Every structure is written in structure tokens, then in C-alpha cells.
Computed example of a mutant assay.
Amino acid sequence: MKADKSLLNGSATLLVLSLLSTGDKYGYQMIAELEEQSDHTFSMKEGTLYPILHTLENTGSVESYEKEAPTGRKRKYYHITKKGLRLLGEKKEEWTAFSQAVNAVLAGSAPALA
């Protein structure tokens, strides 16, 4: 099931930082890993990913560097910084509080009529 795009937009920075917390990655690799790890629930387009990466880079949360791939092609890799790890911790706390609040409301709701 595909998630509503507005749900992905609200958590995209958290997801990108989480992916980078496991190691340096290039753009397409992040897109592919996000799809795979979410069992194809999340599909992020390059037009969404790269502005997030640029913002994170401008704030010092992520750094980029170029490296030659086995194919001989240069790729731009992204690396999470200590500041980015702190931001990831903050975003995880925000997500936990938000999801607990949503789940509390859902748990108290009456079943829908058929």
C-alpha cells in the first residue's frame, strides 16, 4: 500500500537522516533503500530527496563528497555529521510523541459503520 504523500513529506528528513546514520550513501542508493526497507510503502523522488539533502548540507547536518564508483563514474555521497546525528535524535523524539498521540486518538475512536 502506498502511503499518502503528505505523510511522507512530514517525515522525509527523519527518514533521510536515518538512512545516512547507517553509512554514507549516494542519492539513488537512498531512494532504493527507502523503498526496500519500507516494503515499497515509501517511494521518494529525486525532486524530493535532493532539496532535503541540500538543506541538511547547508545547516551542517550532512556533508557531501565525490567518489568514483566501480563503473568509473563519479558519484556524490552524503555523510551524516555529529550535528546531523543530534538532529536525528530530535526528529526521532518528535516522531515518537506524534505517533503516540495519533495512536491514542485512533485507539479511542469508535469503529466505523459499514
Rank of each mutant, 00 (worst) to 15 (best):
M1K: 11
M1V: 09
A3H: 07
A3D: 06
A3C: 05
D4G: 01
D4E: 11
L7Q: 13
L8H: 10
S11V: 02
A12K: 05
L14H: 11
L17G: 06
L20T: 01
L20H: 07
G23V: 03
G23Y: 03
G23Q: 06
G23R: 01
G23S: 08
D24Q: 03
D24N: 10
D24H: 04
K25A: 14
Y28I: 11
M30G: 08
M30H: 06
M30D: 03
I31D: 05
I31G: 05
A32H: 13
L34P: 02
L34Y: 02
E35F: 00
E35L: 02
E36D: 11
Q37C: 01
S38I: 04
H40G: 08
F42H: 06
F42N: 09
F42G: 03
S43H: 10
K45G: 11
K45Y: 12
G47S: 12
G47H: 03
L49P: 05
Y50S: 08
P51L: 05
L53D: 14
L53M: 09
T55Q: 14
T55Y: 08
L56P: 05
E57L: 02
N58S: 15
T59R: 13
G60L: 03
V62T: 09
V62N: 03
V62D: 03
E63C: 01
E66W: 00
E66Y: 04
E66Q: 15
E66G: 08
K67N: 12
E68F: 00
A69R: 09
A69T: 08
G72V: 05
R73G: 10
R75S: 06
K76V: 08
Y77G: 13
Y77W: 14
Y78F: 13
H79Y: 06
H79N: 14
H79V: 03
K82Q: 12
G84L: 04
R86L: 13
G89P: 00
K91M: 04
E93D: 12
E93W: 00
E94K: 02
W95T: 15
A97T: 10
A101R: 05
A101W: 01
V102Y: 05
V102Q: 03
N103E: 13
A104F: 04
V105W: 02
L106D: 12
S109P: 00
A110I: 01
L113Y: 07
L113A: 15
L113D: 14
